[in-house]
Design a protein around this nucleic acid. Structure first.
Length: 125
DNA sequence: CACGTGACAACTC
DNA sequence: AGAGTTGCCACGT
């Protein structure tokens, strides 16, 4: 797209913005789509977001469909509530059924328009 | 279920 | 320029 320096973090955040309302994606999925070397990178990228960001970070969960804990325990509750308000249903075990709410990823046109090339192999997963 | 292992980018001195 | 710091993972055994 541009000549600007697109960091891997920036690319992942771009992908997160594409997660539609009512769906969730996993860290590994985001990292893979953005070409990051490790799924952990997705978590790092989200961790640096400002409080008033427009990036729907709450729609990113771990591979089991659970909310990843972080420094502030309250953050987990807030994220869960945000998702509930978006229509996501949590199972009795506190996890989200990824078969029902998991995102399939960006449209092929979007990937091409943004110069994203899906790697044939998914980094560690 | 509790471990250990694999694997990084961006930022601040 | 380069070392040190800091972060919301996934999977196998």
């Amino acid at each position: 797209m541009s000549e600007e320096k697109e960091t891997v973090y920036r690319k992942m955040l771009l992908v997160v913005r594409e997660i539609p309302l009512g769906r969730v994606a996993t860290y590994g999925q985001i990292a893979w789509i953005a070409g990051a070397a490790s799924p952990r990178m997705a978590g790092y990228a989200l961790g640096g977001l400002p409080a008033d960001t427009d990036v729907p970070w709450q729609r990113v969960v771990n591979s089991k469909g659970g909310i990843s804990p972080r420094g502030d325990p309250m953050a987990t509750d807030r994220q869960r509530q945000m998702l509930v308000e978006e229509g996501i249903l949590f199972q009795a075990d506190g996890r989200i059924d990824l078969d029902r709410f998991g995102w399939d990823g960006p449209d092929p046109e979007w990937l091409e328009a943004n110069d994203f090339t899906l790697l044939p192999w998914r980094p560690r997963s």
